[in-house]
């Protein structure tokens, strides 16, 4: 089996893939030591494994690593810059948008994906709809929606 060459959090990465069954999620967590993306359901239903592939949010549990030749992957470990948290990370802290924190990396990556899509504005119904692929069993959604809205507001006012 040929090797996988791709980019993870801005750094080139080569991995020998002896078996095509490895998902992106298992590759990140078990081979690359990036345990931010979480394995909740492993069936695409909970969103805890959400990462960005070429800027678009996807479920890492349903992505075959072998299909990612040349792709750029972003996980929660790659969001901060020089010790400064990404604005979405900071907003989650400011709004107390978590309790146990298990879903948080997926929520944050999904929210950044939503921002990249650029369609929701800060409309609360659209933020809720856009974040529906990420479950939070602690019930922190009010804080999550508030955090996402705040960043989207700042993002849209800054870009116009």
């Amino acid at each position: 089996m040929s090797g996988l060459e791709f980019v993870v959090n801005g750094a080139a990465c080569g991995v020998a893939l002896e078996d095509p069954r490895v998902t992106l999620l298992d590759l990140l967590r078990d081979r690359l030591g990036l345990t931010g993306a979480k394995k909740g359901c492993d069936r695409g239903q909970c969103g805890a494994c959400t990462v960005l592939v070429n800027g678009a949010r996807v479920n890492a549990c349903l992505t075959l690593a072998v299909a990612l030749q040349g792709a750029e992957v972003t996980t929660v470990e790659g969001l901060s810059e020089g010790g400064n948290l990404h604005p979405m990370q900071q907003a989650f802290l400011d709004h107390d948008a978590l309790q146990c924190g298990f879903c948080t990396p997926g929520q944050i990556l999904s929210a950044i994906g939503l921002m990249n899509e650029g369609e929701s504005g800060d409309d609360v119904a659209r933020v809720r709809e856009g974040m529906s692929g990420n479950l939070c069993r602690c019930g922190a959604q009010p804080g999550i929606v508030a955090a996402v809205q705040e960043v989207l507001q700042a993002h849209s006012s800054g870009s116009r």
Binding site: G44, T63, S132, G133
Partner: peptide, 9 residues
């Protein structure tokens, strides 16, 4: 249909 993540895939 589905979620934003799944629609992207």
């Amino acid at each position: 249909g589905a979620s934003a993540q799944i629609r992207n895939m």
